[in-house]
Amino acid sequence: MTNTLAGRLAVNASVPVQASRWPARLDLAQSISGLLLALFMWGHMLFVSSILISQDAMWTITKLFEGYFFFGRSYPGIVAVIIALVFGLFILHAGLALRKFPANYRQYALFRHHMRGMKHEDTTLWYWQVMTGFALFFLATAHLWWMLTHPGNIGPFASADRVWGDNFWILYLFLLFAVELHGGIGLYRLAVKWGVFEGDDPAASRRKLRTVKWTITAFLIVLGLATLAAYVKIGMAHEDQRGERYTPAWVEHPEEHAP
């Protein structure tokens, strides 16, 4: 009886061949590298904008990184190592993110056409994320390479000389906008992509996230511009003494204290 009445449900046994786990790992790595970079950029911005507080502040932080307060003298090599690490992360992230780029012009054109017709904010933001990512590919590489090869040339005067005297402000101006837009959109995307801060009403949370995102981006750009202006100002004033290093008034012959 039971047999004839059975609903005769087909059971589709799943095939035991395992799909590769790499797509999951790569996606995670992309997000984590992006997140670390974005967090690093916040720190970086605080660090460079310390010039707005005072030249001493900037000097102190620089020296902190160079190990001056631990070892009593500067080791720019430490900075070089940090830069190399960040560079590595950056290359990793760029490599992973490149997978998401339009693979050819056709794809690019399709996307652009679609985006223009639809006028949908998050779709448009992605386009800008790709564009800024592409720009960062060159701009940030240039900056990082320069820093990697001149790790000792960081400081209130050294930086200002570079910004103004070596005309790096042009690079930085573009780099600033690119990285802040990119990072801001990236962090927002991380939140919606993984569903953090979703709350009970994902739509409302998303609206909030977007506001927060724009606020942070605007703040960081303003801060960055002010910082850049500060370097430019110092650079102009310091034009005659190019090459001279900054030494705070309270430090005398700093490098002589070395063990």
Binding site: T123, W126, R189, V192
Partner: peptide, 8 residues
């Protein structure tokens, strides 16, 4: 993992 969270 192909979804780029465009959310349209």
């Amino acid at each position: 993992f192909g979804c780029m969270s465009l959310l349209a």
